[in-house]
Amino acid sequence: MRIVVPMRAVPDLVEEIELTADETGIDREYLTFVLSEWDAQALEEALLLKDSSGAEVVAVGLADDPEIDQVLYTALAKGADAAVKITYSSAAGSSGSAGLRTADRAAVLAGYLAAQPADLVMTGVQAADDLDGQLPSALAVLLDLPHVSVAVSVEEAAGSVTVRQEFAAGISHELQVQLPAVIGVQSARQAPRYAPITRIRQAMQAGGLREVTVTLPPARSTLIVRRMHRPEETGHAEMLAGSAGEVADQILGLLRARGLVKG
């Protein structure tokens, strides 16, 4: 079984996000990019399938995504069998990678997967900057494959996979899905494995990212971003000032007033 895991890095949300001067996009210049947490989960679930049934795991990314080399070498260090960087020649009118929307990313990946088919495509349920929807089902339509997202486990079962799809309040559905298929992973059956930095360095020294080129069809998005802004300050919390001890006193005062702490 050949499993392809599309991966990318997204802005680190612990940092302040700066907007572009025209306020219709994010200023990427000073941002730190980190592996999208749900792609990390998808890779882990794919590696668990490799551990249990010897699947071949191929991590793929778009060549001009920020930090993509780091993302792909880390995937190799964790146990992926191969890593592929996709370069695309964009038709007139499509935006650069930084502004690529989900539908365009799906088109690039579909171009690769049409030439190098997978039995299973597993990618994160979403990415933090998705504006026009999520990748898994956009990709599935282009490949005309069945798809299931918000998966919390994927196990092999003779020509198909058993997928657990999660809903609110911990309710989930167990589905039997014929292969080939596209799965959006919410969380893996276990926390993503750790790759020691020495192993990532070894992977980098060994090189071995394969490169392929596909042609991106013209973008057809009809979304117009009018403005981006930070959430209004209205309804903002009243900030408690002082040292940790002083803040603790104020919090306990709030709890005492409600009879939740004695004394």
Binding site: V10, P11, L13, I17, L19, I26, A128, D129, D130, L131, T222, L223, I224, V225, R226, R227, M228, H229, R230, P231
Partner: peptide
């Protein structure tokens, strides 16, 4: 988007 750190106003043409 971005975990609630940014709001994007978008027109659906």
């Amino acid at each position: 988007i971005l975990g609630g750190k940014v709001l994007a106003e978008v027109e659906l043409k």
